[in-house]
């Protein structure tokens, strides 16, 4: 390590800091983080954990309740529900994460543009944001799905529909934070020290905006999971054979009348678990990060 490195060494690496943070968590946060980790691992390892083909039809075992061979039962064409739920968790999580990334990218872009350009461009962008925010975003998403599903396919259209409807609140926050950080005296001090515009953006503005963007991302994920399943449930999302949680729920709704309660229950529980764990973690983070955002970041 060089002399300067020794003079300014960081106290502990990232892992160590994460462990220290986790030690301060209340019990409900540990439970939430544990369950979420379990779900993510199960989703990632869906092919390994559930070796059966999630689309394999077995007409000898149709609509069977939970047994040792099929812990969550089978659906109306005899597909193993555990396998389908595991795949569903994976598909839903991947779509939700990508869609949230898209939403955060749009929001951050609009916010940064409005905050940087100022003047008329700022006014136009922010009124546009108001218009988007005042719409019913679910219906607007349906419109986007109908328009883009033939072009992009179900997965792409869902990401687009979620990404383009969940950005206004972040755009407002990013713009506000950018405007406020630019007025802080430490920016003047940095200019006096010889910082260029590029240096100001990279060293002072960006680190100031990142926590808000990161938090908005996490807050959007459970929302996106719900939206994906809602669109799929309505038949607007993924292809019916794909094991997203929304599709399985749609199957379950039909089977409920035939007494197949397990087909709706298990994917429903999985959906609830994902949304609640991520939501809990995001909520905790928001409370501890920035009290002022509590009200603004209601996504």
């Amino acid at each position: 390590m060089s002399a300067a490195g020794a003079a300014l060494r960081l106290r502990g690496g990232l892992t160590q800091r994460l462990v220290e943070t986790a030690r301060r968590w209340p019990t409900y946060m540990r439970v939430a983080a544990g369950v979420l980790a379990l779900l993510v691992v199960a989703g990632l390892l869906a092919n390994v954990v559930a070796p059966l083909d999630d689309t394999a039809v077995d007409l000898d075992h149709v609509l069977e309740g939970p047994t040792a061979a099929h812990p969550m039962g089978t659906d109306e064409v005899g597909r193993d529900l555990l396998t389908r739920v595991l795949h569903g968790v994976r598909i839903s999580l991947v779509i939700a994460v990508l869609a949230s990334l898209a939403a955060v990218a749009v929001g951050a872009l609009v916010g940064v543009l409005a905050g940087t350009l100022g003047g008329r461009a700022d006014a136009v962008l922010m009124r546009m944001t108001d218009v988007f925010a005042s719409q019913n975003h679910f219906l607007f998403g349906v419109l986007l799905l109908v328009l883009f599903r033939p072009v992009l396919g179900g997965t792409g259209a869902i990401m687009l529909a979620i990404g383009f409807t969940h950005w206004p609140s972040l755009a407002r926050i990013v713009r506000g934070e950018l405007l406020s950080v630019r007025e802080r005296p430490f920016v003047l001090a940095a200019i006096g020290g010889g910082a260029s515009r590029h240096r100001l953006a990279r060293r002072h503005y960006l680190p100031h905006l990142l926590p808000a963007v990161g938090l908005a991302f996490v807050l959007t994920v459970p929302h996106a999971v719900f939206h994906e399943s809602a669109y799929s449930f309505l038949g607007l999302g993924l292809e019916p054979h794909q094991a997203s949680l929304g599709n399985i729920l749609a199957d379950g709704q039909r089977s409920l009348l035939a007494g197949g309660w397990w087909i709706a229950l298990f994917p429903g529980l999985a959906l609830l678990a994902i949304a609640m764990t991520i939501g809990t973690i995001a909520e905790y983070w928001r409370e501890h990060l920035h009290p002022r955002w509590r009200s603004e970041l209601e996504l």
Binding site: S2, P185, A190
Partner: peptide
């Protein structure tokens, strides 16, 4: 108000030199 809350005190003191490329933060 005059110090970026995200920089350590030592980093903040050295920041003008690094920002104006007179020195790199790694220099002895």
């Amino acid at each position: 108000m005059a110090v970026d809350p995200r920089l350590r005190v030592g980093e903040a003191i050295l920041e003008p030199l690094v920002a104006s490329r007179l020195l790199a933060a790694r220099d002895a």
